[in-house]
Design a protein around this nucleic acid. Structure first.
Lengths: 157, 157
DNA sequence: TTATGATAGATACAAGGCATAACGATTATA
DNA sequence: TATAATCGTTATGCCTTGTATCTATCATAA
């Protein structure tokens, strides 16, 4: 009776059984990165979605909300509150387009560009710290592999 | 007036500006993996949380709900509905522990072990397909790098 | 033994993220 | 001109996860 290796809490409970799944490891890493990112953006009054929106608007001035939604891979209704918040805070401008009066042209204001610059630097700095254990070559291959996984999955959906 | 490179939608809108952030790439990859995983588990009546719970219970028979919560990195209240669902479906047993009548000892039933075996194989098969563009060595280094990121982040929190 | 604090599980509740359905205004197409 | 499609919007719901709080049980100390 004394040879029971699987008896209750004699051994410490672990998540070893889930480790073989890459998805599990990726989720854990994502949790860590997300927590760090949220903590980094919070002092600037930004969330992930608002930071992402500012970044894409800055890189594509004059785009519409529908285009922004497509670039961020979220549905259009979810951006309404985001653009409203950014507009209210004076970070972006929302101008009617004469040629198509259905859409708004989104652009960063001066204040928005300034905040985005601040936030970008903060995020870059935090990422560097978080990935300091990895070499630049490792980071590059990591990015490449994640990109491959992403395209493999999206191609066949 | 015709030299405007940043005029509206002349260029296609992209998310290129977010690509330098590793966190962004990781989130996109996670979205892909999660969607695939959910689609894989759905025919078996499982979600990520129930599959993870079954896996950890199978590897640690007799553990308590609190231990399960710790292994899965979720708060205790979130597991109440999970264990209730699994119990109702006859996939796990929840026995009172005589030495500590506050806790339950969780174990897989025969049906639970059978379903877990099915699900594990299905998930492994789907992961192999999703990562088919990567070599075994690449997958190994990917797992290692994700692990490093995870421990770097959790150590200092 | 009794009083006090800690723990397990459960309940209620809230917040965030994201999706779908449907609507008015506008534009495109037949 | 009639019909379909698109943009931004509103309402709504689901899923996941967290916090606060409660009861029952156990551990510890006076």
């Amino acid at each position: 009776m004394s040879g029971g290796e699987e008896t209750d809490t004699a051994k410490r409970v672990t998540d070893e059984a889930l480790r073989p799944y890459l998805g599990f490891n990726l989720r854990r890493a994502w949790n860590v990165i997300h927590a760090d990112l949220a903590a980094t953006l919070d002092p600037l009054g930004l969330r992930m979605i608002t930071f992402s929106a500012l970044t894409v608007i800055g890189d594509n001035p004059g785009l519409s909300q529908a285009q922004l939604a497509a670039a961020l891979s979220v549905e259009r209704p979810n951006l309404v509150a985001v653009t409203e918040e950014l507009t209210t805070r004076g970070l972006i401008s929302r101008d009617r387009v004469p040629s198509d009066r259905r859409t708004y042209a989104l652009r960063l204001t001066t204040a928005g560009a300034r905040l985005l610059a601040q936030a970008s630097e903060a995020v870059h700095t935090h990422e560097r710290q978080l990935y300091s254990v990895l070499s630049e070559a490792e980071l590059e291959s990591l990015r490449a592999m994640l990109g491959k996984i992403e395209s493999t999955g999206t191609e066949r959906s």
